[in-house]
């Protein structure tokens, strides 16, 4: 049995190493949505859109940005948009109000989130409507670019 130990241990390590390499390749999008951009900056034109859970395999990394190819189009995403952890989505899902009668709640693969948040909002009487409104306010790419340009910030900057 002893003579099997060393090769077996090596085998385990080799497999672990190969697994890490295999896993290191694929990244999952961990934000609601993100644009794949024509250049590695946030005001560059988008070439594709990715959603939460989408998987990408980067071609290369330059600084904080990954170059990826999505639907035949090549572009850049920031590393904070993705994770090497597996992001799983499950289909279906019922709300708390219908589920309490059946004593079960479908998590829809989202952990804490939907069901617990709904239960919390209902049972603790917390108003989410203003947070929702706050979340809807966004600054578009065009707005950001115009704001930076007008303010002479970033690449439009002038030294005093």
């Amino acid at each position: 049995m002893k003579r099997f130990f060393f090769p077996a241990a090596l085998g385990v390590l080799a497999l672990a190493f190969v697994s890490l390499l295999y896993a290191a390749d694929v990244l999952s999008v961990q934000v609601q949505s993100t644009e794949v951009r024509s250049a590695p900056k946030f005001w560059a034109a988008p070439v594709a859109t990715l959603a939460y859970g989408d998987r990408v395999t980067p071609n290369k990394q330059e600084g904080d940005w990954y170059q990826v190819t999505v639907g035949g189009k090549t572009g850049w995403i920031h590393k904070t948009a993705v994770t090497s952890r597996q992001v799983t989505l499950a289909s279906g899902g019922s709300t708390v109000s219908t589920a309490t009668s059946t004593d079960e709640v479908s998590l829809a693969g989202k952990g804490f989130n939907e069901s617990v948040e709904k239960n919390y909002a209902q049972t603790r009487d917390v108003d989410f409507s203003q947070v929702d409104a706050m979340s809807k306010l966004t600054v578009s790419d065009a707005e950001l670019k115009a704001f930076l340009e007008q303010g002479k910030l970033a690449e439009w900057g002038s030294t005093p």
């Binding site: 961990q30 934000v31 609601q32 993100t34 900056k41 946030f42 005001w43 939460y52 920031h78 904070t80 948009a81 706050m134 979340s135 306010l137 966004t138 600054v139 707005e143 950001l144 704001f147 930076l148 303010g151 910030l153």
Partner: peptide, 23 residues
Amino acid sequence: NRVGKAVVVVSSRPEIYGGYHFA
């Protein structure tokens, strides 16, 4: 929100699940 976004895009964590929002 515009001033906020300007510093967010060059921060160490520009991408976040639902985006940054200021009020």
